[in-house]
């Protein structure tokens, strides 16, 4: 199930996956420090650049303080996006760097959080339950150069490579 194709040193997200990224989503992020210790957190927004090979991922530095130093130290990042209504999930991986937060990142975070919270509520997750998960406080932005994409939907295809940097 190939949903994107390799090109140069990064993979490019194709039309099918673009549709997925237009749905209400939740996201989770991992990075590992120089010692190989992984850490995790939740994403609160993203922006796919026009080249479709780079994704900017927003998270709360206040809530997940270990993420930024790990991204800076290890230089890599993994992000999994899931559509809560049907569990369809994709994981994106690759080299990552931090950049300064801008006003438009906060707008993106607000839209993402609102869409996710509304979707969860429609699926029966009461708002007070999901409030602790998503905050834009201390928003930070990482730029991910996508080198691998995996199907992560629970089921027999989970973990299958859906696209990779051909090297």
């Amino acid at each position: 199930m190939v949903v994107c194709r390799g090109e140069g040193t990064a993979v490019r997200i194709d039309e099918k996956l673009i549709d997925f990224f237009n749905r209400p989503l939740m996201s989770i992020i991992a990075a590992a420090d120089e010692a190989g210790r992984p850490t995790a957190g939740r994403g609160i927004g993203f922006h796919l650049e026009d080249d479709r090979k780079t994704m900017e991922v927003i998270f709360s530095g206040w809530q997940w303080p270990r993420l930024e130093p790990s991204i800076r130290g290890g230089g890599k990042m993994a992000v999994t996006f899931v559509s809560p209504s049907d569990y369809v999930s994709f994981q994106l991986k690759g080299p990552a760097v931090m950049r300064d937060t801008e006003a438009q990142d906060l707008d993106r975070a607000e839209r993402f959080i609102t869409a996710a919270t509304d979707e969860l509520e429609a699926l029966g997750v009461a708002r007070p339950l999901s409030v602790p998960w998503l905050t834009a406080r201390g928003a930070r932005v990482a730029r991910l150069s996508i080198s691998e994409i995996y199907v992560q939907t629970p089921g027999p295809l989970a973990g299958m490579l859906a696209g990779a940097d051909p090297g």
Binding site: I28, I29, A30, A31, A32, E34, G36, R37, P38, T39, A40, G74, G75, K76, M77, A78, V79, T80, V82, S89, Q91, K93, L129, Q152, P154
Partner: peptide, 19 residues
């Protein structure tokens, strides 16, 4: 009730994250 999250890293430091 609410899915847990697991973060791991390969020997070369590439992280992995899943529910």
């Amino acid at each position: 009730v609410i899915p847990s999250i697991i973060a791991t890293a390969s020997a070369d430091g590439m992280p992995n994250i899943s529910y």
